[in-house]
Simulated scan of single mutants.
Amino acid sequence: MTTISPSLLACDFLNIESELGHFSNFKNIWFHLDIMDSHFVPNLTFGHPIVEKISKKTKIKLDAHFMVSNPEFFINTFKDFEIHNFTFHLEATTDPLSLIKKAKEYYPSVGISIKPNTECSLITDEILREIDLILIMSVEPGFGGQSFIEDTYSKIKYFKKLKDSSHPNLVIQVDGGVNKENSHKLIKAGANNLVAGSYIFKDGPSSYSAKIESLRS
């Protein structure tokens, strides 16, 4: 079953505890946390205090996506917040293997993300052997609500081929502009974890279950 990762960046932050509770009985979901530093990307989102509080209010797996210039700093400072998956950007480091090794000391799953214009081939086989997840950005990272970039499908197929040949446990995650119109095609191409923010949250809590199932079907 495809994992759906609601992006909390799009939720009602004034009522975040209630928002978390609406998902408590849903199966196979992660909460996606967009951590931005206003340097690597032109936006600033929530930091340590908010993530710590979220971690104490839910049992759903937390999936942290660090759009930051210094991911090595956050490996240490987030290690006590019950983060399941720690994803950093390939473009933010010159030594991804070292960062992966360090992150694996604290996090059950470690991922790497690539921006839309980054070549897939820069994720070497050596890197793929060490990571648990590849996050393909289908919009430019920094802001929610952007339009989906069509070239994403070819990137998914590229990593699906590598997954099938030699990395069977690799999670292929897609983030940006995901909705019911493109989710089936994304899954067919090889994605097995879909991040969605605006699509899930925009119509309020009564629609959350139906929105999540529409992405899977």
Score class of each variant (00 low, 15 high):
residue 1 M to Y: 09
residue 1 M to W: 09
residue 2 T to G: 03
residue 2 T to H: 01
residue 3 T to Q: 06
residue 3 T to V: 12
residue 3 T to S: 04
residue 17 E to Y: 15
residue 17 E to G: 13
residue 18 S to G: 14
residue 18 S to I: 14
residue 18 S to L: 14
residue 18 S to E: 15
residue 19 E to S: 12
residue 20 L to F: 13
residue 25 N to D: 10
residue 26 F to A: 12
residue 26 F to D: 11
residue 28 N to D: 15
residue 28 N to S: 14
residue 30 W to Q: 07
residue 31 F to M: 03
residue 31 F to N: 01
residue 32 H to S: 02
residue 32 H to T: 02
residue 37 D to C: 06
residue 40 F to Y: 14
residue 42 P to K: 09
residue 43 N to S: 11
residue 44 L to Q: 05
residue 45 T to A: 12
residue 46 F to W: 06
residue 46 F to R: 01
residue 47 G to M: 06
residue 52 E to M: 08
residue 52 E to N: 13
residue 53 K to Y: 15
residue 55 S to C: 07
residue 56 K to Q: 15
residue 57 K to N: 13
residue 57 K to I: 09
residue 59 K to C: 11
residue 59 K to Q: 09
residue 60 I to Y: 06
residue 60 I to H: 05
residue 63 D to S: 00
residue 65 H to T: 02
residue 67 M to E: 13
residue 70 N to V: 14
residue 70 N to C: 15
residue 74 F to R: 08
residue 74 F to H: 14
residue 82 E to S: 13
residue 82 E to Y: 13
residue 85 N to M: 01
residue 85 N to K: 10
residue 86 F to R: 05
residue 86 F to D: 01
residue 86 F to K: 03
residue 91 E to C: 04
residue 91 E to D: 07
residue 92 A to W: 08
residue 96 P to R: 03
residue 97 L to M: 11
residue 97 L to K: 10
residue 98 S to W: 09
residue 100 I to A: 11
residue 100 I to Q: 09
residue 101 K to L: 14
residue 104 K to C: 08
residue 106 Y to I: 09
residue 107 Y to K: 05
residue 108 P to A: 10
residue 108 P to S: 08
residue 109 S to Q: 05
residue 110 V to S: 07
residue 110 V to H: 04
residue 112 I to H: 00
residue 113 S to N: 03
residue 115 K to L: 12
residue 116 P to N: 10
residue 118 T to L: 07
residue 120 C to E: 11
residue 120 C to F: 07
residue 125 D to I: 12
residue 125 D to H: 10
residue 126 E to M: 10
residue 127 I to T: 04
residue 130 E to R: 11
residue 131 I to E: 03
residue 133 L to C: 03
residue 136 I to L: 02
residue 138 S to A: 03
residue 144 G to N: 03
residue 146 Q to G: 10
residue 146 Q to R: 15
residue 147 S to M: 11
residue 148 F to S: 07
residue 149 I to M: 07
residue 149 I to P: 04
residue 152 T to S: 13
residue 153 Y to E: 05
residue 154 S to T: 15
residue 155 K to P: 12
residue 156 I to R: 00
residue 156 I to S: 00
residue 157 K to D: 08
residue 157 K to W: 02
residue 162 L to K: 15
residue 165 S to N: 14
residue 166 S to Y: 12
residue 167 H to R: 04
residue 168 P to M: 02
residue 171 V to C: 05
residue 173 Q to D: 00
residue 175 D to R: 03
residue 177 G to P: 09
residue 178 V to C: 01
residue 181 E to D: 14
residue 182 N to F: 02
residue 183 S to K: 08
residue 184 H to A: 12
residue 185 K to I: 08
residue 188 K to P: 14
residue 193 N to H: 00
residue 195 V to F: 02
residue 195 V to H: 00
residue 196 A to V: 00
residue 198 S to Y: 14
residue 203 D to F: 15
residue 205 P to K: 02
residue 205 P to W: 01
residue 205 P to L: 01
residue 208 Y to I: 06
residue 210 A to K: 15
residue 211 K to M: 06
residue 213 E to A: 07
residue 214 S to Y: 08
residue 215 L to G: 08
residue 215 L to V: 09
residue 216 R to L: 05
